[in-house]
Nucleic acid binder design. Sequence first.
RNA 1: CGGGACGUGGCGCAGCUCGGUAGCGCACCUGCUUUGGGAGCAGGGGGUCGCUGGUUCAAAUCCAGUCGUCCCGACCA
Length: 569
Amino acid sequence: MRWSNLFVPTLREPPADAEAANHKLLIRGGFIRQLHSGHYSLLPLGLRVHEKVAAIVRREMDAIGGQEFLLPAMHPAEVWKKSGRWHAVGEEMFRLVDRKGADNVLGMTHEEIFTDVAQEITSYRSLPQIWYQIQWKFRDEPRPKSGLLRVREFAMKDSYSFDIDEAGLDRSFDVHHDAYVRIFAALGLPAIPVEASSGAMGGSGSTEFMVPSSAGEDDIALCGNCGYAANVERAKARLSVVEDRDLSELARFPTPGVRTIADLETIEGGASAVHQIKTMVMVLDGEVTLALLRGDHELEIQKLADFTGAADVRPATAQETLQHLGANPGSLGAVHVDGLRVVCDPALEGRRGLTTGANEDDWHWSGVDIARDVAVDEWADLRRVQADEPCQNCGTPLEIVRCIEAGHIFKLGTKYSDALGASVLDPNGNQKPLVMGSYGIGIGRNVAAVAEIHHDDKGLLWPLNVAPFEVVITIVNTKDDASAAAGESLYNDLRSAGVDVLLDDRDARAGVKFADAELIGVPYRVTVGPRALADGDVELTSRATGDTTRVGVDSIAALLVDTVNRERG
RNA sequence: CGGGACGUGGCGCAGCUCGGUAGCGCACCUGCUUUGGGAGCAGGGGGUCGCUGGUUCAAAUCCAGUCGUCCCGACCA
């Protein structure tokens, strides 16, 4: 490709509303342009990177026996109604009505559609199957953000495994896990597999691949010693031991103006946070529920959702709280509360001498004995792990690390095959529902993640695997005939050797060309100019290290072919 | 959905307080000079000032509404 013919609208300044590094650099480098919130056009450079990421994913999926499909992006509502997700998903799904008045959706994922196809698998002898596609998903995100990291329309590699039993699913899950490890390694992403919540997808377990980055949106708990890693939506930690206070008598006491745990710590007759009960009033699919935690702990809403299976979990409004408990936040508690579901964190199990709200404004209880005074319906781990809490395995203080969710794999079980009637005959002639897994990698998000991880103050620093070009030949002065001829000759040699090479033949000043090459992040730059050419040399500069070496005109092509082949991996 | 900010040529911004018919830098076009780290000089093209309505002799500027975008919190590849 010749730069003089390529559309690469580089900018010296990023748009004012770009915040994330990947966003700024992909815009500045002429890779993407925004059409609309959450919808980006891929320009030629952006598409090249996108396709290279997709090619790596495709290669690894093929390597584990995946078969590539391409399913429709638009689906009839019926199939989503069969699985129950037409109602379960809510506003995240784009829905539209066709001319016949029929409901349709733009696919946000494809469990239903692949399972529909899988109805034609009839025998256990055909199993296992791994099916995948790289295809566009549509999700009406409440808040698209950070360039390509979170958008409403994006290419995703989604794959689905079909097995006869759980053991088969475990194997399919494991080969996907390993394939994902290889994919992220090839992309130069230091992804950490972590235990995750499977959320609305359903199923028995899931693993997320998390790339540490401040641009991310998820927190994981990480043990630097034993390697324990889990999304905070699931993470556990050892509980610090608390000695109960010697207060066995339940007593009401006035707490004028007390609204927070901290207030209650300092007021006369109050208690330190570890001796308080935090009462969170939540609404689970319309049912008002009390979630109880130790005063110094925080509620992890996803844990509550996972435990209860509720699809919609939200804090109660002020009116709901007042209506059901008779008091405002700050004076709430579960003592002697009847008729509301009470879910309690194990950190409160067996605790006594506690202090909590009395469900009357400006009054609290002291001397609360959980077992005696609170009608707990269910016990469930509800607390969000905090930094420096001891690892449950080895006791080392946990780190909380902000991450980009680069991939997510799920064990689905038979949720979709049951709903859609996808079953096979087992060796004994019995109908068995297919045991399924589903596995996703967002292609554009991974482009963004690589950009987020690999850049410096001059621009992008693509790993060779995904760089829009592997080599750029910068002709310092195109009016110098010898330079132009040498550049053209090298360009032809590299092209015929299969190197992805860009010839910067623009009639521009050298500084402009150098700056652009660095901005778009081409791993190797060959500078062809009269200075080195006088000695029969060109200069080879590594984008990653900035190191420049002189190489003879006669040997540069072979050296680059060699280098590129080695780094392609 | 709650909170905050912002919409003026492709990008970055000024102008708005105090209404008078739009300006700067980058980018772009032409010419000359220049040519190893974002050149210089001269000339030039491009903007319904997000949209709608209102106030006014007159609106980028004041008022109301509306749409959109971004950021922070609740959601997910």
